[in-house]
Design a protein around this nucleic acid. Structure first.
Lengths: 141, 141
DNA sequence: GCTATATCAATCGCATACGATTAAATCGCA
DNA sequence: TGCGATTTAATCGTATGCGATTGATATAGC
């Protein structure tokens, strides 16, 4: 492990993440979404009505980042934020009709990214699993 | 390619990058550096005296991000920023003595990260090369 | 029941990221 | 040579990220 950028796994991840977001940018611009907003909506499309904390555990963000992001999504009319009745500390995030409708307009994005990646679906899946394993090791260590 | 967070290669990269920065955080706190500042210094430790543009091409950042970051490194006395004499548009970034000295104090970091990754050096190297290949495909596409 | 503790979202401050624009300097080409 | 196009860094505005703190609510233990 030398101390040079091209040799560093951290820089490979860092620059690949940026390159990935660059690929997503024009696709998300069509939906008027930023990349983290897209991740949050993806979590909600899978399971609606989650609390801020539950969303944060999925996308790996804290309330200090999520709260402003969710307020922007609420201003755009894609979600609603309501205090939980059973536990007033929690805030439930629920998709609006436009928020739900957006899922269909995002459905083509994964295929676009697969195509841009220049890899086969099998190779990309294997790579994803290896990166996920590394991430879990890093979190655990 | 489904539209769910755990299945998305982009989210694997995104969350692994965050996990990696979380591992670096305490190591870089000891040096008083942020993660992008560390990347910039790493590039300078390999080759001193680069222009803002050359640094940006390496760490994949534009002057809009680099200029404030470099000003902070200059305030901390780690680098100097001087207009090029041959081309007044360019600004040369040069390490100061403290900036050079910091390299030795950062030398142990790669081994720490390797250990936290839970992977062998061979596995990590292979994974790094695959991620780099993906990044280059994404940039090219 | 009552209080110390814990949990949850929000807020604040600072440092990235990045699109768009600007200003200065250099280059290209007639 | 001269002038429009290009390059380079800086600036501006918006949106993350994140450490630290705060305020409100819920829980646990006595």
């Amino acid at each position: 492990m030398t101390l040079a950028l091209p040799d560093m796994i951290c820089f490979a991840l860092y620059s690949a993440t940026h390159a990935m977001q660059h690929v997503y940018k024009p696709l998300l611009d069509d939906l008027g979404l930023t990349y983290p907003q897209y991740l949050v909506l993806t979590a909600l499309w899978t399971q609606d009505g989650q609390t801020v904390g539950a969303l944060g555990r999925q996308v790996q963000l804290e309330s200090n980042t999520l709260t402003p992001l969710l307020k922007r999504l609420e201003e755009r009319g894609l979600i609603t934020r309501t205090r939980s009745e059973t536990d007033e500390r929690q805030v439930n995030i629920t998709l609006t009709d436009p928020g739900r409708t957006l899922k269909a307009r995002a459905a083509h994005i994964p295929a676009c990214v697969l195509e841009k990646s220049g890899l086969s679906l099998d190779d990309l899946t294997r790579l994803r699993d290896q990166i996920t394993t590394l991430r879990d090791h890093l979190r655990a260590g």
